[in-house]
């Protein structure tokens, strides 16, 4: 699914909205998450997941082609951790009936 497919799905499910507005809504959501992360603010959407920014220390990397040592500066990396509900839904995937609990999986 792409962003435009997502917009198309939402537009057909919400015929009372202009597709221009649906597009604006979807863009607003991702722009706001981006803006929050740019400020270093975490975004938490219960059941879906949390977006955070992780710091990576400066390190000495290597040019894989030449083997030459290259300094890599400290940087920030966006990170997403799926929420419990989404994580379980994804894992369950096609097998819809019953999600084995962690204990059941360990014992299986």
């Amino acid at each position: 699914m792409t962003k435009s497919e997502l917009i198309a799905e939402l537009a057909s499910a919400n015929p009372h909205l202009l597709s221009r507005d649906v597009e604006l809504i979807v863009s607003t959501i991702f722009d706001e998450i981006t803006a929050a992360l740019a400020r270093g603010t975490r975004v938490e959407l219960r059941g879906f997941g949390a977006f955070t920014v992780k710091r990576r220390d400066a390190r000495t990397g290597r040019n894989p082609r030449t083997g030459e040592a290259v300094p890599v500066n400290e940087k920030a990396v966006p990170f997403f951790k799926a929420g419990k509900e989404l994580r379980e839904r994804v894992d369950r995937g096609g097998k819809s009936i019953h999600a084995p609990s962690r204990a059941e999986r360990v014992l299986a």
């Binding site: 699914m1 997502l6 799905e9 939402l10 959501i29 059941g47 879906f48 989404l86």
Partner: peptide, 10 residues
Amino acid sequence: LLETVLERMS
């Protein structure tokens, strides 16, 4: 709408 976006993605 926000909820629908998250649900469609899920």
